[in-house]
Amino acid sequence: MKSNVDGVLRADGIEGSSTGRRHAPLRFRPMGDRSFLVELGEKISPDVNCRVQQLMRQLQDAQLQGVRELAPGYRSLLVVFDPLAIAPDHLKERITEIDAHPLAAGLTPAKQLTVPVFYGGEYGPDLEAVAAQIGISTDEVVRLHTGTVYRVYMIGFTPGYPYLGELPAELAVPRRRTPRTRVPKGSVGIAQRQTGIYPVESPGGWQIIGWTPIELFDSGRPLPSLLEMGDRVKFEAVRPVEI
């Protein structure tokens, strides 16, 4: 089952198909008496991330008694529950059962968003340093950053903040030695094999290479976050005059 809508990306959601491919058993890591992390793999990969997405959807649909929150990560799902309403061991059993019977219908199609970015200058104060550190031109950094369609692996850090991957290996740079105390809203950053967009002004340690006027989060919208886990993002270089 293809879950992508753009027709270019590789097929996703295979783990959820009715072919029932075998995968690693779930691993539960307790976080206190009221939550555990359900780990679905060891590394960052689209397949593992799809499984996280799939399990979250199934648990949402199952509406298990006592479950208060589901927080997906790259490779794990945090399940928060009321331990007086459901015993942790019972909940683990239920989740294991549910995971063994994947959704027949697969995941709903992901959407792809093109994000306009002003690169460099006052919009991307770290662009030149990043280029110098890698040993390529700033144009080449922009070409590489805009040349990939990224997967939204998770939303976190601040409301609406998309963790996008994977950044081309050539662009992998460490976080800034000293994080900034204020990164402007709309800043586009990179760190290691990830890229992301700051939805609100916040502290931040990623290298800022550009800025976008897109509104990523609005608490008044029915779906407050513009992007959801599993969506796709492509960056497009624009000049301020074009907007």
Partner: peptide, 10 residues
């Protein structure tokens, strides 16, 4: 580590 969900008390 690879980013993951968190809650108060952790």
């Amino acid at each position: 580590i690879i980013s993951e969900g968190i809650l108060s008390g952790a």
